[in-house]
Amino acid sequence: MAWEIARPSRMPAVSGVDMAGFRIRGDAPETLHAIPHPAVTIVIEFGDRSFEVRDASGRAHSASLIRGLAGTAAPARVKSLDCVQVRLSPLVAPAILGFPPAELGENIVALEQVWGRAAARLRERLHDAPDWPQRFALVQALLAERSANAFPVDPEVARAWERIMASRGRFRVEDLADELGWTRQRLWSRFGAQIGLTPKRAAKLVRFDHAVHRLVQGHAPARVAADTGYADQSHFTREVREFTGAPPTSAATEPWLTVDDRAWPSTLA
């Protein structure tokens, strides 16, 4: 299977947004897995598509879609796909989506269900655009327009998310409430209502994301487990299985992870 990956020369002006372009071609359909990532994912496909992604309920999706903060890998059958993929921080996602990511949960929904006719128009314009720079400009323009929506996240929730991200999931979430001046119950309630995960689950996802990319880079599972805060290698193995459905050695070869160093360089920072 051949992968062409493009990156915009300039990142979107909207903070908390990243994007990449993909052109995937194969002689026959292959089964891949969309691995969980601490972001809301938008896939805007264009061209002659031949792919199918299944959500947790088993429903198939074969058009532009939005995926919430996922807890498990989504199986995908791919033969050909042209798309711009956007990753949204859950702090900016409410403005761009028009609702908090908590309403998505771990589900996959059709992009047209959220953006209406704007999604179809964007797909048509991406199809007609002659190159990746123009496609990225089209997507960036729509994101900037939608990000003007007033849908603020509580400053305390935003700070909690930023602390979890900065610590790569190793911050003691039990200490967050005291630091923010909230009760633990209020933090868990507001964070869950706006982000869609508990602070503890968010930290677990962020730590996994950092650790699994270390694995892809070629580090031994025992070394990764020790360096990223797991109790031991078996603890790390359990969490990799929980998020990917596979042992560490298999997860490290998943194409959606192995191309990240080209598509999302900041992921590996």
Rank of each mutant, 00 (worst) to 15 (best):
T244W: 09
R190N: 09
A263V: 09
E242K: 09
H235F: 03
R117G: 13
S266T: 14
A74D: 09
L65V: 06
R121S: 13
A120C: 06
W115P: 00
V43F: 02
F51S: 11
A39Q: 09
G26F: 05
D154R: 11
L111N: 12
A144W: 02
G105E: 04
A76M: 15
G26K: 03
F136A: 08
T258Q: 09
P152H: 03
G21R: 14
Q217S: 10
A160R: 01
G16H: 01
A20E: 14
R170I: 03
V84S: 05
A252S: 15
S15M: 06
E179Q: 13
P221V: 05
A269G: 15
A95V: 10
D261P: 14
G192F: 00
S89H: 01
T253G: 06
A220E: 15
R170C: 11
A110H: 13
A56C: 12
V259A: 04
L142P: 03
V86C: 06
R59T: 12
V114H: 04
N149P: 00
H33F: 15
A118Y: 03
V240L: 11
L257G: 13
V139R: 01
S266G: 09
F46R: 00
P12K: 10
V92G: 01
Q85F: 02
P248H: 07
H213Y: 06
R168T: 10
S147A: 15
G245F: 04
S89R: 01
A177M: 02
R172H: 11
M11T: 08
Q233V: 09
D260F: 01
D55G: 11
F151V: 07
I42L: 14
Q185K: 08
V139M: 00
M165Q: 07
R223S: 14
R214Q: 13
A202N: 08
W3M: 12
L197H: 13
L81P: 10
L143V: 12
Q85G: 04
H219A: 13
L205A: 05
Q140K: 06
